[in-house]
Computed example of a mutant assay.
Amino acid sequence: MRTAFGADFAVPQGYLNTPSIGVPPATVAEEVAAAVARWRSGGDQPGDFEPYVERARRAFADLVGVPAERVAIGSAVAQMLAMVAAGLPEGARVLTASGEFTSTTFPFAARGARITEVPLAELPGAVRGHDLVTVSVAQSADGALADLDALRAECEAAGVPVALDATQAAGWMPLELDWADWVVAGGYKWLLSPRGCAWLAVHPRVAERTTPVAASWYAGEDPWQTTYGMPLRLARGARRFDLSPVWFSHVGAAAALPYLASLDLAAVRAHDVKLADTLLTRLGLPERGSAIVALDADPQALTRAGIVASARAGKARVGFHLYNTEDDVERLLDALR
């Protein structure tokens, strides 16, 4: 058991796979286990999960720097972005980064949008002439960070809306994304929640351009009054984009996200980035200022050496979060040797 940032984590030595699956604080795992125990004996009613959903919704808003009333809930990033894609005109021109994670791009391509890919560093300069920009704050494959200030300036000057995927950034980076048109993130990586919860922040200026393609009873102003019969009656705000929650996932998120939101995220970023940059420096490589590192190494060889990492885009991908230590860096260096 490791103790970090005021919480206990049953994370094994050499675990560097947070960009794939985050390890929860013990209290989060205990909350989910208790919910499963109640389910086993029929101890909950559907409405009992509402406080968990709302607690996680508010904490997500805090983590990405938007008002809570803008946030809709769902279970996956692509599912949420499909509502953005459905609101685009036919043949829309969508700009993204080369090698972008496909949950951030496939919803648009599947709707017939014309996708233009450019190197991440060139993204702000290519904004004009497009109908939308969709990009991750931190790239999944290698942790490269988008220049958000430059992107914001270019998008505002050109009047081009932007959808930001914060999945690989929220939880370790301090974020103030209230300027973005849409902000989406999945919860099971750096947000330390069970898989099956995601959130979409919708700026009021693009609410009418967002289509609730999977509208259900849960998207009503009062879900318990929209369970049967017509007419269509959706909530007035961002809750009109809500998807029915995966209960146990939101139980975990209701414990994990408020914990993360209570931390000094600048200190979390400094901790995570210091470990990542220490690794790079020791390997004779330039620092990158990200918690995610892609290495020219054999992931299977790392596994045999006791390092838990991922194979992504032909490289071994590792990530350093608040529960990692310098010992993990040393273990990885030994494995690489």
Rank of each mutant, 00 (worst) to 15 (best):
M1N: 03
A4P: 03
A4I: 06
G6V: 09
D8K: 07
Q13R: 13
G14M: 03
L16T: 04
L16D: 05
T18Q: 02
P19G: 11
P19K: 07
G22I: 06
P25F: 07
E31L: 11
V32H: 08
V32Y: 03
R40H: 08
P46H: 08
G47L: 09
D48N: 07
E50T: 14
E50F: 08
E54N: 12
R58E: 14
L63R: 03
V64Y: 02
V64M: 07
R70P: 04
R70L: 13
G74F: 04
A76H: 12
V77N: 10
A78S: 15
Q79E: 15
M80A: 15
M80K: 06
M83Y: 00
A85Q: 06
P89E: 08
G91P: 05
G91C: 10
L95D: 04
F106G: 03
A109F: 07
R111A: 15
R111W: 02
R114A: 13
V118E: 01
E122V: 01
L123I: 04
G125Q: 01
A126T: 00
L132K: 03
S136W: 01
D142N: 15
L148W: 00
L148H: 04
C155M: 06
E156K: 05
A157V: 04
A163D: 00
L164W: 00
A170Y: 05
G171C: 08
M173H: 09
L177C: 08
L177H: 08
W179S: 09
G187I: 00
Y188Q: 12
L191E: 02
G196M: 08
A198C: 01
H203E: 04
R205E: 11
E208T: 13
E208Q: 14
S216A: 13
W217Q: 05
Y228V: 14
G229D: 08
R233H: 13
F241Y: 12
D242S: 09
W247N: 15
W247K: 14
V251Q: 09
G252D: 08
A254H: 02
A256M: 10
L257C: 13
L257K: 07
S262V: 12
L263H: 07
A266W: 06
D272M: 04
V273G: 01
D277Q: 07
T278R: 13
L279T: 07
T281A: 15
R282W: 00
G284P: 06
G284A: 05
P286N: 10
S290F: 03
D296T: 13
T303A: 15
T303E: 14
R304T: 14
G306E: 12
I307Y: 00
I307C: 09
G314M: 04
K315L: 06
H321R: 01
L322H: 05
L322R: 10
Y323A: 10
E326N: 07
E326A: 11
V329H: 05
E330T: 12
A335E: 02
